[in-house]
Nucleic acid binder design. Structure first.
Lengths: 125, 125
DNA sequence: AAAAGCAGTTTACAGTTGTAGCTTAAGCAA
DNA sequence: TTGCTTAAGCTACAACTGTAAACTGCTTTT
């Protein structure tokens, strides 16, 4: 995913992306609207603006059926790993382990997190 | 660190913060300017604007001597752990271990990182 | 067919950010 | 002291963001 695409997903737009990511299929504006209106209290116009911007940015695709259906061009995984690497670049001098060290030292990890991580980094074989 | 402070440090401003964080003491504008002019190619006016904004935001303190000296109010560690938690909240549903899992699965970790992490999460005692 | 409703498009508007110039006042050099 | 240099403060301005209204044309209802 190029820097040009992901870097431009703003906070509000991200809410729309999340919805699309969690949908199993392309969604018409009606459904997007219904959910975001409830969860975010946004006006229909606002939601339409956000969708349009995402389409211009190339991260959401629209297909014309009776009415437009929208689906994400980039996956949630792609986006989040991009965002994570971006954070590491910007504030941890590119060292991923510094990020994790920071999490550890700032108590950013729950007991469960730590248990999972022990599992994850257990020396296997 | 309140949300109001850290969330408002922008990318450009962050460059100024980094400089102040790495300085052992408060710095006069001249020194800040000299370094950022070289490393970033920014005009003096730009640098002054960024410093002023950081002061308004309360993340940089100024003390009047002959001339103003600037120093960070929040530490780099505070900031980076805040930014990390913010990322986890925004895109990993609050689960720190999901962030790390994402790093692992997207090959965001070098061999060295992994070695360090094994060490870090080794079951001790 | 006339009216109503709504998808899609265009326009709006204030706040933030990146980037920088202009003005004013004070210290230093001549 | 008289002007030059520059710190500090104020102003600028376009792009991006959050938020939304207005308009336009098609579909559906009466």
């Amino acid at each position: 995913m190029s820097d040009n695409l992901a870097s431009k997903i703003t906070d509000s737009e991200l809410e729309v992306m999340k919805l699309l990511w969690h949908a199993s299929d392309a969604l018409p504006v009606t459904e997007i609207r219904e959910q975001l209106q409830r969860s975010k209290g946004w006006e229909p116009a606002t939601i339409k603006t956000l969708i349009s911007r995402l389409v211009s940015k190339g991260v959401v695709r629209q297909e014309k059926r009776n009415v437009y259906y929208y689906s994400p061009v980039i996956s949630e995984k792609e986006y989040s790993s991009w965002a994570t690497k971006d954070l590491i670049t910007r504030i941890y001098n590119g060292k991923a382990s510094d990020l994790i060290a920071s999490l550890v030292s700032s108590n950013g990890l729950t007991k469960d997190d730590i248990a999972e991580l022990r599992e994850m980094f257990k020396v296997e074989e």
